[in-house]
Simulated assay, not measured.
Amino acid sequence: MNEHEIVSSGLLESYVLGITSQEETTQVEKLLSTHPEYQSQVDDIRESLESFAWQHAIEPPVAVREKVLGSIQELAAGKVIPMTRSSLHNLTNQRPGLSVTKTLVSSRNWVAAAAVIMVLSVVGNIFLFKELKASEDMVATLESNNTQLAKNLEVNKASFMQARQEIAVLQNPGTKMMKLQGEPIAPTAFAMLYWNDAKRETYMANVQLPSAPTGKQYQIWAIVDGKPVDAGLFDQATSMQKVKSINGASAYAISLEPEGGSPQAGPTGQVYLKGSLN
């Protein structure tokens, strides 16, 4: 592996963290001996990792901290060595060639590596928590959608049953039909009235009227002995609507009234549709 491959592969970072194999360690140290200019890069990596680790480190309880540091010292020196002035002097005398500074730096590297691993673990847990939260939100959304679908199904079922009843009335031999024609104000307006005297049911269907302006609403009138009788308000959102059954009606009309219906006993607005039973 040449120098560019060593640098680009992240081997220097692994070397600083102390997680390289023996072969990789030899390659890095050979690179540093033959190309001293890379030593500054290694130092920068070490400082960056240590700075990141110490900035994100969490102060552990005293007992845990002492136990961890003791284990780190064992890993670095091969045994636990009290870090007093005399012990440092004895350590250098007992192990000639051993650099106490290097040992302490190595120990510090282990602390930094442990802190980095801890930070990565926290980040991983945060990511997993977010994924879990997203999954829970998705489940909640699906449950809400299922609930809404069930409600829509019930509404559609009720509408279907109502439509079947209305069709049954229209197909009944006793049901009669009347056509309402548009007045000059709306010559293309159109509607059909169906009624069944035996069942006392009346329906307005196939209504084609201009959209009612804001604050206005169409009202249906039954004409009995020449006088208008309220037969209900017309809902333009429906294709077929059941209206009041009025005995003795000889004609029907639809007028445009204030929203909620005419305040009087007859139309106050313009009549748009008229139809006679005769």
Score class of each variant (00 low, 15 high):
Ile223Val: 14
Thr188Ile: 06
Ala189Leu: 09
Thr214Gln: 13
Ala212Pro: 11
Ile223Leu: 12
Ala253Phe: 04
Gln219Asp: 06
Gln219Ala: 13
Lys242Tyr: 00
Gln208Leu: 04
Ala265Asn: 15
Asp230Trp: 00
Gln219Arg: 06
Leu209Pro: 05
Lys179Leu: 14
Thr238Leu: 14
Glu183Thr: 15
Lys199Pro: 04
Ser211Phe: 02
Val207Phe: 03
Leu193Val: 15
Leu180His: 09
Glu201Trp: 00
Glu257Asn: 07
Asp230Gln: 06
Gly182Tyr: 09
Lys227Trp: 03
Tyr218His: 07
Ala265Pro: 04
Ala265Tyr: 05
Gln219Leu: 04
Leu233Cys: 05
Asp225Trp: 03
Trp195His: 01
Arg200Glu: 04
Glu259Ala: 14
Pro263Cys: 08
Lys242Met: 09
Gln264Ala: 12
Lys244Ala: 15
Thr214Phe: 07
Asp235Arg: 07
Gly215Asp: 08
Gln219Met: 10
Gly226Phe: 07
Pro258His: 02
Thr214Pro: 02
Gly261Ile: 05
Asp230Ser: 12
Thr238Phe: 03
Gln264Ser: 08
Asp225Gly: 08
Tyr194Leu: 09
Leu193Ala: 09
Asp230Ile: 06
Lys216Cys: 03
Gly260Trp: 05
Glu201His: 05
Ile185Gly: 03
Ile254Pro: 06
Gly260Thr: 10
Gln241Pro: 05
Gln219Trp: 00
Pro213Val: 03
Pro210Val: 05
Asp197Met: 05
Pro228Trp: 00
Ala189Phe: 06
Gly266Asp: 12
Ala237Asp: 08
Ser211Thr: 13
Glu259Pro: 02
Ile220Ser: 03
Pro213Glu: 04
Lys244Asn: 13
Pro213Asp: 03
Glu201Arg: 15
Lys199Gly: 03
Val243Glu: 02
Tyr203Arg: 02
Thr214Ala: 15
Asn247Lys: 10
Gly266Met: 10
Pro263Leu: 04
Gly232Trp: 00
Ser262Asn: 10
Asp197Leu: 02
Glu259Ile: 11
Gly226Glu: 04
Asn196Phe: 00
Lys242Leu: 01
Asn196Lys: 08
Met192His: 07
Pro263Val: 05
Pro263Tyr: 01
Asn247Cys: 01
Pro210Asn: 08
Leu209Cys: 06
Ile220Leu: 14
